[in-house]
């Protein structure tokens, strides 16, 4: 199970300001230093800098995301394709300590869960299941602390990666419907299209094809250029199943980089 590509999170405004508080300013110097190191492919330095920064600013979503990216790039540079599981273990172990020290850091829990998601492509098939379950545990803790749109979307979407046989689609739909209700109260944001896609997928996994298509159609009415929504509406039966199965393939690495969030600020 893995998160979808989160590049959609290009936020036109300050929509996530409540989510990503405290503000970035306190860590700007660290971020700059880490960025320099990353640009020089000095991943060890970037990781060290970001680990130190996160210990004092654990709920900073940018620090957390950059840290995970540094881990991933280091791993893939050394081990092409999917990286080494051991590298991702560092991320998991680190955030385990961070949330132990900062038990109310909702965003730290979110990044903690993403560490497991990032490791999935490098792991064996059984370990993938264990990692997916570990990620859900951390996402749940994040929601418990702060039921934000992104946390609900993340957990809800994660449930959809589980095979139907495990009966988790209903849990995913429940989370996604909560996120849907949240976004209905906001002005339309670019990233909202992902919710339409995932919630439609959730209905599809529950064999409610009509409801799925209605959700995708609603999404398309708001995002007429969405290729992913169109791709779903253009397909039927086995063709649609094949397409969605491919989208939810646990062996495909998905970018969990959240950089668009702050870049859009």
């Amino acid at each position: 199970m893995r998160m979808r590509n989160l590049s959609f999170l290009i936020l036109p405004g300050l929509v996530l300001t409540s989510l990503i508080a405290p503000a970035f300013a306190a860590s700007d110097a660290d971020i700059a230093k880490a960025e320099q190191a990353m640009a020089a492919k000095d991943y060890n330095t970037a990781i060290t800098v970001l680990e130190a920064a996160l210990q004092s600013d654990p709920d900073n979503i940018r620090l957390g995301s950059d840290y995970r990216q540094a881990i991933m790039r280091k791993s893939i540079a050394a081990h092409p394709k999917e990286g080494s599981p051991l590298d991702f273990d560092r991320c998991i172990t680190f955030f385990e300590k961070v949330v132990a020290a900062h038990p109310n850091a909702a965003t730290a829990y979110l990044n903690y869960g993403f560490c497991s998601v990032d490791k999935i492509p490098a792991a064996g098939s059984i370990t993938q299941v264990l990692l997916a379950n570990a990620a859900l545990t951390q996402f749940s803790k994040s929601i418990e602390l702060k039921p934000s749109w992104i946390a609900l979307y993340t957990r809800g979407n994660s449930y959809l990666y589980w095979p139907v046989i495990f009966g988790k689609a209903g849990l995913g739909v429940a989370d996604l419907e909560r996120a849907y209700a949240m976004q209905k109260t906001e002005p339309t944001r670019a990233y909202h299209q992902r919710l339409y896609i995932s919630l439609g997928d959730g209905y599809w996994k529950q064999d409610n094809i009509e409801k799925a298509r209605a959700m995708w159609k609603e999404g398309l009415s708001r995002f007429p250029e969405s290729k992913q929504i169109k791709a779903r509406l253009d397909r039927k039966d086995d063709d649609l199943k094949s397409y969605i199965d491919d989208q939810l393939d646990p062996n495909k690495r998905v970018d969990t980089d959240l950089h668009e969030i702050w870049e859009a600020k």
Partner: peptide
């Protein structure tokens, strides 16, 4: 515990 060794799945794809 999980022990992982080597270079990961499909390391050889030259």
């Amino acid at each position: 515990t999980f022990s992982f060794s080597g270079t990961g799945t499909g390391a050889r794809f030259a």
